[in-house]
């Protein structure tokens, strides 16, 4: 079955050319294609033009800057990310958890971050969706996850975004209006059918990670088998321990909402890790997460895994830093 349709493929070698091409109607970017092509094959989009970004300069390497910042080009493959000595452990854990080794040799960091949201009513063949009257995310007017909802609840299932977010990553974006830098968290919005804050023509160029001295971070995901699967629940935690207290704590979740989200945990800073703190952490994760029936696996299990993973990672990082 091939619903790829009829599109042109452009492979620009300059950023200006790429931005110009992507500003046009019906243009979509492609890098590794591991997320886009399966979706196109299911008829989930009908682009007129695919802009292959793989020939662009300056965004396929990982560079350490003099101030300790690590700049990662958006075209760096997940395989290269895992192999690089400059990449923090939590980001490697997240990258290594993505799909299978062949996907990781092909898929890029930028593509992983900008991947489409997913839903059991969306990632289906054309005839399946048609039989269901399509859905709010694409071609239809009803959300089957939350009936009577006026917004799409497709879920963001990227692994790497939360790991980068707890490390205060920034995103470098270029577009028709020039370039801008934002916190990676600001690349996303809680809207399943429009979850990226990129305007037409804008390209995610690179991610930069500041040097975070004294912090430890980790990422873990729950899934039904140990390869290929997207996270049913994913949690990243960064923790700084000083003088027997939590000197800094950052938590982000994925596989739960339409965007990867930071969990507000500032109230725990200054305290000593223990049952009460773990309880509050769990409460904050529960408040932030809005897990719905967007996967075949039940929402209750995913909700409980989010809490369990957050507590487990924070506890492990606390002990590790002792």
């Amino acid at each position: 079955m091939n619903l790829l349709g009829d599109f042109n493929l452009l492979r620009p070698t300059s950023l200006d050319e790429a931005v110009k091409a992507l500003s046009g109607e019906g243009a979509q970017p492609i890098a590794g294609g591991t997320d886009l092509l399966p979706n196109l094959r299911r008829g989930l989009s009908k682009p007129k033009l695919l802009v292959d970004l793989s020939a662009l300069d300056h965004c396929s390497d990982i560079v350490a800057l003099p101030d300790g910042t690590v700049r990662i080009g958006a075209l760096v493959t997940l395989e290269a990310l895992v192999d690089s000595p400059l990449i923090p452990e939590a980001v490697k854990q997240a990258a290594l958890g993505v799909a299978g080794p062949t996907h990781r040799a092909q898929g890029t960091l930028g593509g992983n971050l900008c991947q489409d949201t997913r839903c059991v009513f969306y990632n289906q063949s054309d005839w399946w969706r048609e039989g269901n009257g399509f859905c709010l995310k694409y071609q239809g007017d009803k959300c089957h996850v939350v009936a009577k909802s006026d917004r799409c609840y497709a879920t963001y299932h990227g692994d790497i975004a939360p790991a980068l977010m707890v490390l205060e990553a920034r995103a470098e974006i270029v577009g028709p209006e020039g370039s801008r830098r934002i916190l990676l968290a600001e690349l996303f919005r809680e809207k399943g059918d429009d979850h990226l804050t990129l305007s037409p023509g804008e390209i995610l160029l690179a991610i930069s990670l500041p040097a975070m001295k004294g912090w430890n971070a980790a990422y873990e995901k729950a899934r039904v088998r140990e390869a290929i699967e997207f996270p049913l629940a994913g949690v990243a935690v960064a923790l700084k321990r000083e003088k027997g207290r939590i000197a800094g704590l950052r938590v982000a979740i994925t596989g739960a909402n339409s965007a990867p989200l930071m969990v507000p945990v500032d109230e725990l800073v200054g305290q000593e890790w223990g049952d009460a703190v773990a309880e509050t952490l769990g409460k904050q994760v529960r408040k932030t997460a809005n897990v719905l029936k967007s996967t075949i696996t039940g929402a209750k299990y995913r909700r409980r895994m989010l809490l369990a993973l957050a507590r487990k990672l924070a506890s492990q990082l606390w002990i590790k830093a002792a």
Binding site: T34, L37, P38, T102, H103
Partner: peptide, 9 residues
């Protein structure tokens, strides 16, 4: 390097 031919143009 390995590559999945069904999701590569």
């Amino acid at each position: 390097r390995p590559r999945l031919a069904c999701i590569t143009l």
